[in-house]
Simulated scan of single mutants.
Amino acid sequence: MYIFVDYDGTLVKNSEEKFMKTYFSILSRKVKLPIEKIFNLVMDSIYEITKIEDPSKNLFERFLESISKKTGKSKDYWYNIFLDFYKNEFDELRKIIKVNKKLTNFIKNSNYKFIFASNPLFPEIAVKKRIDFANLSPENFFYIATMENSHYAKPNPKFFAEILEKIGVAADKCLMIGDTENDKASEKVGIKFINVNNFKPELIKIYFEKYFS
């Protein structure tokens, strides 16, 4: 069986809002722009790439194009800025992370195959660090969604459908653990959803037997 897992509010107890507040504070310092300006630039670009579908380009390519058009600076400029940021300053975020030990220990000690299904709004270098922040390793996951290998984002059900197609697994072999309606969108493609607040390791086998036997 395959278990999709969200990150913010799920693998870690931090809400996405708290994480992003600290993230943009650090990014603002990096790019030497007021926090409000870099926040609006990034979030407007994220909104654009998640609302306007273009399966011919991955989310990272589309993000770089979008922010480049908004600023008049090249895609290479923004690529290098973000790459350096994720190599260096991004590590400062580790100090605010509160790990959901019950879930991360379950992942480390289980024979299920886990899919890292946080919204793919970070490139691979950042995603791997986020996994490390949660005291996990990329090797703990059968598949990891990133900006580079994704063309859709939650709550678009195509995000889940694309992963199912890539790993060659039917929805009725999967479960999604998350904390928001974005994660519950998995049910639109047939992946059962369980709220992380109801997660108990001993109940996962029972849950699979109940719904997928």
Score class of each variant (00 low, 15 high):
1 M>P: 09
9 G>R: 02
9 G>N: 03
10 T>A: 12
11 L>D: 00
14 N>G: 04
17 E>G: 09
22 T>N: 11
25 S>G: 13
32 K>M: 06
37 K>N: 07
39 F>G: 02
40 N>T: 12
41 L>F: 08
44 D>P: 00
45 S>C: 08
46 I>T: 00
47 Y>P: 01
50 T>R: 01
55 P>G: 13
56 S>W: 05
58 N>S: 11
59 L>F: 04
59 L>K: 00
61 E>L: 10
62 R>T: 09
63 F>R: 03
64 L>Y: 09
66 S>C: 15
70 K>N: 04
71 T>P: 00
71 T>H: 03
72 G>T: 04
72 G>C: 00
73 K>M: 14
76 D>N: 15
77 Y>P: 05
79 Y>K: 15
82 F>N: 04
83 L>R: 14
84 D>Q: 12
85 F>P: 00
92 E>H: 11
99 V>H: 05
99 V>Q: 05
101 K>L: 11
103 L>C: 04
105 N>P: 06
107 I>N: 00
113 K>A: 05
114 F>E: 01
115 I>Q: 02
115 I>G: 03
116 F>P: 00
118 S>H: 10
124 E>M: 06
124 E>A: 09
128 K>F: 04
128 K>C: 00
129 K>P: 03
134 A>G: 03
134 A>Q: 03
136 L>P: 00
141 F>C: 06
143 Y>C: 05
143 Y>S: 06
144 I>F: 00
152 Y>G: 03
154 K>Q: 11
156 N>G: 13
157 P>G: 15
159 F>R: 12
161 A>W: 08
162 E>L: 07
166 K>Q: 11
170 A>P: 07
177 I>S: 11
178 G>T: 08
182 N>C: 07
185 A>F: 08
187 E>R: 03
189 V>K: 08
196 V>S: 09
196 V>T: 12
197 N>L: 14
200 K>S: 15
205 K>N: 15
206 I>G: 06
208 F>L: 09
208 F>M: 11
211 Y>Q: 07
